[in-house]
Design a protein around this nucleic acid. Sequence first.
DNA 1: TCCAAACCCTTGGATGTCCTAGTATATTGC
DNA 2: GCAATATACTAGGACATCCAAGGGTTTGGA
Lengths: 167, 167
Amino acid sequence: MGTPLPRDPIADAQRNWEGHGWGNVAAPMAAVTAIMRTQQILLGRIEAVLKPFGLTFARYELLALLSFARSGALPMNKASALLQVHPTSVTNAVDRLQAAGLVVRSAHPTDGRTTLIELTSEGRTLAKSATAALNSEVFAQSGFADHDVDQLIRILSAFRKNAGDFT
Amino acid sequence: MGTPLPRDPIADAQRNWEGHGWGNVAAPMAAVTAIMRTQQILLGRIEAVLKPFGLTFARYELLALLSFARSGALPMNKASALLQVHPTSVTNAVDRLQAAGLVVRSAHPTDGRTTLIELTSEGRTLAKSATAALNSEVFAQSGFADHDVDQLIRILSAFRKNAGDFT
DNA sequence: TCCAAACCCTTGGATGTCCTAGTATATTGC
DNA sequence: GCAATATACTAGGACATCCAAGGGTTTGGA
């Protein structure tokens, strides 16, 4: 998928929108499309860094979440809510992490419906290493200027709140 | 995946990062994570609007690209480059669009390796309708303030250029 | 001219996401 | 107390994305 294009395809699309009389939504269209593409680029970088650890981003996120849980354990429904993904996605991730010996499922002490996900010591160690790698190889060189990072956090936080992610 | 959380999980993660001595990368981490989540929200809205048309976002993007191609046809490798996705993803999308009668594959006049994707009249009509729906139901109500849209376009364009998307 | 290298598309496999049930356990209300 | 409703997790299926590999077509250098 490799060589750079001679022109920005998203800017072209924006011009196309304007040329078709949709100028009022051309800019939001371009912004939304740019977010899609940026996410794709960032995900690619993250996956590349995690690959040597045998992790994908989905599994890493779960591992990281558990590692910050103090007790090292969380109910699956809680993890689903915090990661904002479908419960079946968590089931899928836990299956694989458990097969890799990084987490274990255990029964909830009082609620028989609930399953706890618990970090193993291997899981905790791996989470730490993977986080260090992401910090130095992705986040420390994100490609965003410092003040742009602040802008992004502000803009996207407002968007997410408005979209009903949190109160 | 429903009720709003009482707190912003990304802001919490940022605080966690700072608390662990990773303050220098906490903000980029939060920005990157927010982009991931924002993309997920936007994709969900888009897919919901496209569903009645029997389209997914991937298929719509290809359809829209073809509809702007004047001749209504593009080589698959060109589509792959412009959409910035793996060639196999285009193969997949074309398979389904062709099965739905929205595009047809045809031979390239001079290069036997290349396959052209061509819009059918049904495909062109559907692309028009779907675009109108996206414009009014997603882009016209993106949830971003106008000046934030400009900021996003500026910031993400610089990022994509820096990432090698275009020159 | 001719064969190796480059290029194009497709197939097959691994992952992840969501949706739609289906099973099991809790909670609520009468 | 017991039935109806709600909640939690999982199984199966549809899609999309990427990678690796394979077969056909062009191009280019010896």
